[in-house]
């Protein structure tokens, strides 16, 4: 198997699949052309992420990184949430094959897109958060695994 046990666990038993009806922020990234779309829903109250859900179209790594990213963000403050990088998601999954690293980048972007949506809806500025790019295929410099 090309994936770690943790990746397979999160693929076979994904955590937080679904939608949040009254989500505070929703982020959708990726595109069907390249084969991955992630949609992440966040419920935020008093600056804390109370709940997170996702829906993902993609490979095993795309599902597993979505699952792990939503797990990591739950209970975090917005400031802490911004520290969840693609590397953090990968490390939590015991690594990804090099050609799947872009899935973890997509998960990070999906979290940021959802936070951006939350900030826009509430007219606030989250320091250190940049407007997300929704199309991963436009990224020329995808980080490579070290």
């Amino acid at each position: 198997m090309m994936y770690s046990e943790k990746v397979m666990d999160h693929f076979m038993n994904p955590r937080n699949v679904g939608e949040i009806e009254d989500a505070s922020g929703v982020g959708t990234v990726g595109n069907a052309k390249c084969g991955d779309i992630m949609k992440i829903f966040l419920k935020i109250e008093d600056g804390v992420v109370l709940d997170a859900k996702f829906k993902t179209f993609g490979c095993g790594a795309a599902v597993a990184t979505s699952s792990m990213a939503t797990e990591l963000i739950k209970g975090k403050t917005i400031k802490e949430a911004l520290e969840i990088t693609n590397k953090a998601v990968m490390e939590a999954l015991d690594g990804l094959p090099p050609i799947k690293v872009h899935c973890s980048c997509l998960a990070e972007e999906a979290l940021h897109a959802a936070l951006w949506d939350y900030a826009e809806k509430n007219g606030i500025v989250i320091e250190g958060l940049e407007k997300p790019v929704n199309d991963i295929s436009e990224h020329e410099d995808l980080p490579q695994e070290e």
Partner: peptide, 20 residues
């Protein structure tokens, strides 16, 4: 690839033309 992984969990070996 997701289809293949789930088929594999059931012991079925197949392939796909997906990018992944």
């Amino acid at each position: 690839e997701s289809i293949l992984l789930l088929l594999d969990m059931n012991g079925i070996c197949a392939s796909s033309g997906s990018a992944c």
